[in-house]
Structure formats: structure tokens, C-alpha cells
Design a protein around this nucleic acid. Sequence first.
DNA 1: TGACATCTGTCACACTGTGACAGGAAGGTT
DNA 2: AACCTTCCTGTCACAGTGTGACAGATGTCA
Lengths: 203, 203
Amino acid sequence: MGLRERKKEKTRLAILDAALDLFLEQGYESTTVEQIAGAVDISPRTFFRYFTSKDHLVLWFHDHGEETMLETLASRPPDEPPFTALMHALRAVLADVREGTPQEHARFLKLRRILDENPRLIGQSVARGTATERRLAEVVAARRGASADDDQLSHLIVAFAMSTLRVGFECPRRDGDMSEITARMAESIELAERSLRPGWDLA
Amino acid sequence: MGLRERKKEKTRLAILDAALDLFLEQGYESTTVEQIAGAVDISPRTFFRYFTSKDHLVLWFHDHGEETMLETLASRPPDEPPFTALMHALRAVLADVREGTPQEHARFLKLRRILDENPRLIGQSVARGTATERRLAEVVAARRGASADDDQLSHLIVAFAMSTLRVGFECPRRDGDMSEITARMAESIELAERSLRPGWDLA
DNA sequence: TGACATCTGTCACACTGTGACAGGAAGGTT
DNA sequence: AACCTTCCTGTCACAGTGTGACAGATGTCA
């Protein structure tokens, strides 16, 4: 990894951290891109070369999560029931979060607080999730030997799995610490697994 | 209902219809608010007094659906299992769509095509859904004699129900007619009911 | 008809996001 | 070290969304 890429990554994180702090100080809406750019001494135009939009800042983790899910899903044995495979993917995301550096934990907690204070952003986060769902549905449909276009069950399996993740992520109280949050997410996964009829995702 | 309200409703629908047609002709992104306003001979400023944003146009039906769901849910017997009650609410939404006037059907079909061509808008639609989910979760939690803050299962029940609706709505092929779409939605509801373990929402 | 609330258009504006272009920094090549 | 190439950054200009303030038009009710 060359100097160029390292510098880029550093700038990226600097923007993110500055933005999260500003959002917590003054609120999301009342913080402008100009301020964020100013805080890390770049031009507003450059900001948009690192993040495609102001909202995109908040979806930072989401992109990582999606990647993890797709990778994990691909690595699961092909004969494993699809929903089970997805639950493993969820646990992988959870493990990623838990095993992060203290810095990453801090970012994660800040992000949760911001999302909690700005319901609109939760919406945006979910909105991005629909793109992920489409891709996951393709993979699940392939596993089931069907086409994602016809097979409603593939979509339902994925939708249920993503719901599980969301509930675990959003549900904890705003003052929860890292261990409480991950515990909630784990709890949500177990809840979902208990709720579904065995073999429902094979029919 | 006075003249004022009737006129308002008429303008509202005129804006909506003009917008849907423009979106289908030229695409969502390349249609401006100015054009929409021009098509119905109002000022752009006035447009924003009827719809809070350009996106809001597309969420028109969503607002109706939410209302129907909350009303239906309130009218179901209190001792009915929550997920069952929600499935009834879903069927009520479906019935509303099916029983609409031909004009309303036309709007519905146009809207579906627009959503299908603009994935970003599906996201927005889902995003709005999160607000609905919160309210529904409150009601479900109350039914379960719990607080929505603590009870993850309430959130999961609602999330699963909304997933069911979404899958039914999004899944049909873009060229489907009204009867095919409603059939798909009904199918999705039955699929969900079959998939869950009896009594899972009572624990 | 007159008093009142509500709706509408105009003007002005802040903010997000994008395209085009020119200068500068990183990387590899000789 | 000098060179060229490629990518990154800042500046300028701009389209488009969305909002606040105010004045005038329109519906409502007495």
C-alpha cells in the first residue's frame, strides 16, 4: 500500500471523525459540509470526492457490514439452509464490530447516538440496506436453485435476516455501552432463530 | 368538506398525476420541481406546500397504507396474537389497493414502474417505513403488555410484518397488471404465516 | 358586505452536489 | 536526478432542492 493510499485513508477517517464530532455538538442538520471541510482543512469540493454525500458519512459502517455479509455468505457451505447461512453472516458482522480497535468502537458509539437523535438518518441507513438486500437475494436464490425474480421466498429470507440485524442494532438504549449493544444484537439473532419454523427456508 | 378543501385535494392530485407522468417520460432525476409546477400552473413555492419534497410524491401511497394499518390494528381484538393482527392489517392495505377506483389503480401502477426504475426511491420508501415501524412497535408492545423500549420481540414482530409487505410489493415483474400484483402480495402474506412457528409472537 | 383565516406568488437565500479546468504531488522510468 | 504519467486537490461556476418573509388574492363565516 503506497503513500498515496495511506494518506487517502487517513484523510477519509479525519473527515469522518470531524464530522461525527460536529454532528454531536451542533446536530446533523445544522452542520454544513463547509464546516466539516473546514475542520479538516480541505475544500468542500474535495469532501465530495471522499464521501458522495453528507448522508454517506453516516452509512460508513454499513458499507463494511455489507461487504462482510457477502463474503461470509459466500464462504458458507452451499448445502447449508440459506437462513442459517445468513445468521452466520450476521454473527460475522457482529464479531467485526466487537473486535474493532478502541477508536473504531468510539466511532461506532458516536454513530449510534447520531442515528438515535436523527430518525431520518435511520431511514437513510435502511434505504441503503435495500441495495444490499437485492444482492443478498440474488445469492440466496442461487443457493436455492431459483431465480431471484420469481422466488419470493428468497426475498423473504433475506428481508427477515436484515430485519433481525436492524432490530438488534436499533433497539438498545441510547446510553448503552459496547458490550450491551453487542449483547442485544446477539439476543436479536437468537430470537429470530427461535421464531422461525425449522426448515421454513428450504420449501 | 368545503370548497377550499376540495380544491386543495384536486390540486394535490393534479400535481401528483402530472409528476408521475413526467417521471415516466423523462425519468425521475431529470424532472425538476419547476417542470412539475409548470405542468399544473402553480409556482414552485406552492409545490412545496402540497408535498414537503420531491421524494414525498412517491411516498403518497405509503402514507395511506400507514393510516390503514394503524386503524386496522386498533380495531383487532386485543387478545389476538400480535403478528396475526398485523397480517390482518396487511390484508386491509391490500384490500384498499384492490378496491380503489380505476384512476387510483392507474396511479398505483405508474408508481410501481417509477419505483422499479429508481432503486433509490425504493430506499426512500423503506426509509419512511421506519417511522411507521416505530409507531406500530409501540402499539404491539402495548398489546404484549411491555414497553417498546425493552421488548425486542415487539420490534421483530413488526419488522417481519413490514418485510412481508415489502416483498409482496416489490417482487412482481415490472409489467405485471393489478391482479398479478395483488396476487403476489397475498402470496407473500401466506408465505410469511407459514414460515413462522405458531405462537412465536406470544413468548 | 365586512372581518377573518388560509392559500398563493414573488423575492431572496442557504445548502447540497456536480462538471470543467489548471496546478501540484506521488509513482514509476531512464 | 530529470522526466513523464497519473491521480489528487482547489477554484470557479452552476443546477437544483428546500425555506423564510411578506404582500396580495381567495375562500369562509358572520
